[in-house]
Design a binder for these strands. Structure first.
Length: 578
RNA sequence: UGGGUCGUCGCCAAGCGGUAAGGCACGGGGUUUUGAUCUCCGCAUACCAAGGUUCGAAUCCUUGCGACCCAGCCA
């Protein structure tokens, strides 16, 4: 509770909004929207946009809508919609309104007819290849399509017949009539409607023509009364088109009769009257080292089974991060820390790791788990005794209570916590040496037992009964190691995750599949965790002392089988290498 | 070579003409029954470069240089 989400810093968007409010722009309102296309799962990059949009709205007492940008039915589906709603809520946000671009298909169509009637759009019969050829290049102007001079009547007729399904897919396209010589490629008569006989997950087969993004997005924003339309840098060049479309529509003062739908006509008139000017503002998208946030590539990782699904803990998706044990708060904190600017930048993994460690260090209960067990027999401890030790759930927060941890003659410690030939500064157990068992006694190693192959199979130790809750007298024991009772502990599978890629920017590789880290998952079977962890809850983070933060795997922990995922290691002081 | 955008510490990022915030990372002390946490200290005479304006410039002007985006009937 003490560490709040980081204090907001002045980013340029907050400054713009603050200033707009001061000038009473947009009638003193702030309305944003998060507009994902439902063609994949949300990822950490979306989190930045979500936090920005919902955050700005909340901060300035405005509203934020969730709007599905579902204008391309070929790639979109209901599963993605549902996952998006779930992930936005999980991140901690609630939308003022839930909309779909497809809700506006009828209005969008009517506006298109308007554009045609004003001589601002035309139906083109050029093939896709020809349109590309006619577009010119970055340095040469394009040339006008022969259909550009088609009469308004004919355009209207053709467009209506496009909607009626009289033409084949791709036969015609509706284009905005702007400027084929514009230095901005987006203004060279962009296509705004195409013919596609594809079943849409929401509108079914009602439409065989679908509006394009540039045409749809600005109108959707205007219809919803969005004041600040925040998007990423690659849309900077689209802003003139965004503004152009709305500008033309605002200039239309006569609303033509639409006899087939009187109710719609009324709405249409109202909306046209209040069509206002949202302000598009672009910011840099998130680039996180060692990850990929291209939906196409994430999709490929899933479909080609390089990972186990969209929610694989190695995925940078919100579903993956959730399953890995990241908390919504840590991700919100991350999004605040990285800032919002127009600079292309790469964020180091260390920032995200810091955020989750900070949250979990503060809130996660501590527990003990031995990943690679080594048997330790305490010779001077009663063989049949089970002693319940009370250990604090959090060393700095006694208010989180205590738990009971059983101690017995035979315990298990980490193989790494014993060394026959200790490296310099080694402060764990060595033959003849003493070490503190966390929350328990100090033990001394008397003998090392090996098998025929020379592998250590057991340690014979003795304990000092006078060291429970106090330091031994006359000597210092500097090492502390974790342990677990051999008979009283539970068996668990523990999955150790590492970064999915071996290079900081896999997106820049010729083939990102070539730099997949094949050691990104290490499944440890036969790990032993303290008894209290049998009641672990998925969704809670736990610190396995001295080894890292873990969470119960929400999917695979069934029928009493315990599976834990490592969220992140503890910060390492540099000793782990020895 | 057309248009758009951006260049402040290893990585982010404040700064908006008055003399370089902060975070992460890193290095070093201290505390500690987690080599964790916590805590203290250090970390850009310098803001892509070069000129210029000014009493004064990271902030204004000029000219360079570098990076990113744009030629889908994707979003």
């Amino acid at each position: 509770m003490s560490t709040n989400d980081t204090l907001p810093s002045a980013n340029f968007i907050r400054q713009i909004v603050t200033n707009d409010l001061k000038e009473h722009k947009h009638n003193g309102k702030v309305a944003t929207r998060f507009p994902p296309e439902p063609n994949g799962y949300l990822h950490i990059g979306h989190a930045k946009s979500i936090c920005l949009n919902f955050g700005i709205a909340a901060e300035f007492k405005g509203t934020c809508n969730l709007r599905f940008d579902d204008t391309n039915p070929e790639k979109e589906n209901i599963e993605y919609m549902q996952s998006i709603e779930r992930d936005v809520k999980w991140l901690g946000f609630d939308w003022a309104g839930l909309f779909n671009a497809s809700d506006y298909f009828e209005q969008l169509y009517l506006y298109a007819e308007q554009l045609i009637e004003q001589g601002l759009a035309y139906v083109d019969s050029l093939s896709a290849d020809d349109i590309r050829a006619y577009r010119g290049s970055l340095t040469e102007p394009g040339k006008e399509s022969p259909d550009r001079s088609r009469s308004i009547e004919e355009n209207l007729d053709l467009f209506r017949r496009m909607r009626a399904g009289e033409f084949a897919d791709g036969q015609y396209v509706l284009r905005a009539k702007i400027d084929m010589a514009s230095p901005n490629m987006n203004m060279r008569d962009p296509a705004i409607y195409r013919i596609r006989r594809v079943h849409h997950h929401r509108t079914g087969d009602k439409w065989c023509i679908y509006p394009m993004y540039d045409y749809t997005h600005c109108i959707s924003d205007a219809l919803e009364g969005i004041t600040h339309s925040l998007c990423t840098l690659e849309f900077e060049d689209h802003r003139p088109l965004y503004d152009w479309v709305l500008e033309q529509l605002r200039n239309i003062d006569s609303i033509p009769p639409k006899p087939e739908d009187a109710l719609l006509k009324v709405k249409y008139v109202e909306q046209a009257a209040k069509l206002h000017t949202p302000q598009q503002i672009e910011f840099a998208r998130l680039q996180l080292e060692y990850t990929i946030v291209s939906k196409r590539k994430l999709n490929q990782l899933v479909t080609e089974k390089h990972v186990k699904g969209w929610d694989d803990p190695r995925m940078p998706t919100l579903a993956g991060l959730r399953r890995a044990g990241f908390t919504p708060k840590s991700i919100r904190d991350f999004c605040e820390r990285i800032g919002v600017t127009k600079q292309n930048s790469w964020i180091e993994m260390g920032v995200l790791e810091y955020c989750i460690r900070e949250d979990l260090n503060e809130n996660a209960f501590r527990a003990m788990a031995v990943l690679q067990p080594l048997r330790v027999v305490i010779e001077n401890y009663p063989a049949d005794q089970v002693e319940q030790l009370e250990i604090s759930n959090h060393p700095q927060k006694p208010e989180l209570g205590k738990r009971q941890v059983p101690f017995t003659q035979v315990i298990l410690i980490e193989q790494d916590d014993f060394a026959e030939v200790p490296p310099p500064k080694f402060k764990r157990l060595i033959e003849g040496g003493e070490v503190r068992l966390r929350g328990s006694y100090v033990i001394k190693c008397n003998e090392v037992i090996k098998n025929a192959a020379g592998v250590i199979t057991e340690l014979r130790c003795s304990y000092d009964p006078d060291t429970l809750g106090k330091n031994p007298e006359g000597r210092k024991v500097k090492g502390v190691i974790h342990w677990v009772s051999e008979p009283e502990s539970k068996v668990a599978e523990i999955r150790l995750y590492d970064r999915l890629f071996t290079v900081p920017s896999p997106d820049n590789e010729p083939n990102f599949l070539d730099v997949i880290n094949h050691d990104s998952l290490d499944v440890l079977e036969g790990c032993r965790v303290e008894a209290s962890l049998a009641a672990a809850q998925a969704g809670n983070g736990y610190q396995f002392e001295r080894t890292g933060y873990f969470c119960l795997d929400a999917i695979d922990s069934v029928d009493g089988k315990l599976v834990f995922n490592r969220t992140v290691t503890l910060r390492e002081g540099g000793w782990a290498k020895d």
